[in-house]
Design a protein around this nucleic acid. Structure first.
Lengths: 133, 133
DNA sequence: CTAAGTGCAAAATGTTTGCATACTT
DNA sequence: AAGTATGCAAACATTTTGCACTTAG
């Protein structure tokens, strides 16, 4: 039941960590790792599933397929919001009183219980906006 | 350039409207329309693309494929928020001063420009919550 | 008549699975 | 030794595309 520590898992996790600031697809990972020895695409998917399950990695279902991003083991991000840049893929964690009041407001006034772990606000980050995207 | 009014388009749109309260996949539409005469899956995808483009329909990229939902022609939903129930799929449009202040707040304090048309908050709607999901 | 739309089948993606082999513990 | 993980290739599911044919304007 416990996860074994294999070379492939280490390579995948390492690549995900090094891509911390943006998301990558399973294909990106496989392509990158083709250089550092062989890691089959099936293994990439299987390991990603486990990492998502374990909360180490976050999965985003986007148009052309899913993307993954390392979010670390600490905390489950339940209490703050996530902004994701549609241009560069950066994931921004936001902690802010105004936003913390959002979920309670929606629950009280609209009867809807927001799940912060699943909710991401999409748009353009400062850098991409300034570069005129 | 203008959209022609074809029987297939009418059937697809009618089905989407009748499913107003929840989302459906391209496969759902094709399966349903197999009863009322034949509509090829390719046509379903091509029409859906146009409807999304025109703002009549909203597309959600989810895990097992995309889902679509009729949102009507009035307004482009740029100014209000969307809540989507993960259990029943209901899409709730919310107009509210508190929420209207959200995007400006994020832009000003966090430098991020939220795109309301692409952003959906996921969680549980009142009905599903009361049914103890 | 012309532009646009349609169906079908083939192709292109992205993801999952079966199975024999190899690695971790 | 027992339990997992891996690679490969095949299987799947979803979406897109090429092409000849039909239909709306």
């Amino acid at each position: 039941m416990a996860d074994y520590k294999t070379k492939q898992r280490e390579l995948i996790l390492e690549y995900l960590k090094s891509s911390d600031s943006h998301h990558v697809s399973a294909g990106d990972i496989a392509a990158h790792l083709r250089e550092s020895g062989t890691v089959g695409i099936a293994t990439v998917y299987r390991q990603l599933d486990k990492m998502v399950e374990a909360g180490l990695v976050r999965k985003y279902s986007l148009d052309g397929g899913a993307c993954y991003q390392y979010v670390g083991g600490g905390g489950d991000c339940r209490e703050h919001f996530h902004l994701k840049c549609l241009n560069c893929g950066a994931l921004i964690h936001v902690d802010c009183d105004f936003l913390s009041g959002l979920a309670p407001h929606i629950l009280e006034h609209h009867g809807f219980e927001v799940d912060n772990r699943r909710t991401v606000m999409y748009g353009l980050c400062r850098k991409c906006r300034e570069e005129g995207k």
